[in-house]
Amino acid sequence: MNKKFKIPFALAVLAVALAGCSSNKPKVEKIKPNPLPKLVQSKSLQQTFVQHVSATNKKDPLRLQMAVDNGNMFFVDPDKNTVEAYQGNQRLWSTRIAKKGSLSAGAVAGNGIVVVGNQKGELIALDQAKGTILWTNELSGSLITPSHIQLGRVITVTNDGNVYAHDAVSGQQLWTYRLPHVQLSLRGQATPVVLDPNTVLIATANAYVYGIDVVSGVPRLQRRVSVAEGRTDIQRINDIDGDPVMMGQFLVTTSYQGQVTVTDLQQQQVVWSDDASSNKRPEVTQDAVYITTTDGKIIAYGLLTGEKLWENDQLLHRNLSNPVLLGSDLVVGDYEGALSLLDSSTGKIVGRSATKGEVTSLRVVNNQLYVSTQKGALSVWQNR
């Protein structure tokens, strides 16, 4: 029986560093994170909401992101096994899920439902208004990343490489698609995203992206977007764990030990590619691509040219989150919970705020910054 071995990101970094050492007792040099730079004058963000849920295992960070729909927020508490809904600071409902396995995938909301998943592969849909459980389904593998809702379908990728589509109303399974087997990869999975109104885009651990028809499950696109080099299997790990981003006809991807790549899907050709290891979602505008690398650099590229617009290395080895744009500022979080604000045109750090715990996910919805941390601090921020 083929098995797919998933290794935590931190262990993968250590293994890559040690690969090729000939000594029986290699000396591991501990890399110290850069201290936060001092700011003379700085901006800060205003926190408008905070709720604390259970912390997640540091060795197995999960993307327990908040979902936002119809002005309401939805999130899970992995230890209590509850799903909660808030409108502003008012809790609307809290529903406990029977504990077959701890809730392990962040919530996604749409079509009047909230969808969550657990470590045992159970997919659960709840009514947005009341919090009642509408349907559940047992899938083939654990769920470690949020599902995706499109055209009345709930699209879910399991940790064993299967893609499922369920009817959002009834929960009926409509189709499955088996992704290629990868023997060794990081423990992580990109969330499915919209490729076009009828197609969902799935990024995988073999550095390919697949476009699948949402209604029929028929594959419409298959393309490799990154290549890794190395002498060992660990050095050749080339996962796409950060969500791909579509900007018009351009697909932007990042990969671990690979490249940041912009592909013109209309012309079916790579526009540009640059060596940069990242396991986070890029931030993309009509003019620029922003990434955080695994060693803590923040880099801005021209979307169409690939020209490096700026690079900031002041936050090296601080285990940066994905970057997001909040107004004209680029925001990144780090392992201490610091939220650094950078001028998006120059890369200069211009401000800072702080939350509690390592930042695992940033999102911006309607000019609001949604922050999730490993210690379970879920918060919402806005510009002052």
Rank of each mutant, 00 (worst) to 15 (best):
E283P: 01
V359H: 11
L39A: 01
R91D: 04
T253M: 04
R231W: 10
K38V: 14
N159C: 07
L126S: 04
G211V: 05
V214I: 14
Y256M: 07
D243I: 06
T263I: 05
G302C: 02
V53K: 06
I113D: 02
A15D: 09
K43Y: 05
L339F: 09
G376Q: 06
S142W: 07
L64A: 00
G110L: 02
G71M: 06
L320G: 03
I237A: 07
T360D: 10
N72V: 03
G106R: 00
R384M: 07
A10E: 14
G131I: 12
Q382Y: 01
T82S: 05
N81M: 04
T263W: 08
P180Y: 10
S372M: 02
G117Y: 08
Q119N: 11
A12M: 03
G211T: 03
L195Q: 12
R153C: 06
V225H: 03
W93C: 11
S54D: 13
D264T: 09
L201M: 08
I240F: 09
F75G: 01
Y86Q: 06
E229M: 01
N81V: 04
S22M: 05
V169S: 14
Q314F: 00
I212D: 00
V157M: 08
G248T: 09
S226C: 05
K59W: 07
L126V: 02
V169N: 15
I202C: 10
D274W: 11
W310P: 04
K308A: 08
M247N: 15
V262M: 03
M1S: 13
N118E: 12
N24C: 10
D127E: 15
R91Y: 01
S340G: 00
D160N: 15
K27T: 10
A129T: 14
W310C: 01
P197M: 05
S170K: 15
I202Q: 08
L330Q: 04
K297M: 11
R318V: 01
Q41P: 03
Y370P: 00
K375C: 07
S102C: 00
Q47T: 06
D329A: 14
V83Y: 03
I291P: 06
S340Q: 10
T293Q: 08
Q90I: 10
G20K: 00
T355R: 05
T305L: 01
A17D: 14
H148Y: 15
A228P: 12
N322R: 13
H181L: 03
V289N: 11
Q249E: 15
F75P: 01
I7L: 15
D329W: 13
V13Y: 02
V40E: 13
V365F: 10
W272R: 13
S94Q: 15
N198S: 13
Q119H: 05
V16Q: 14
G302R: 03
K297D: 14
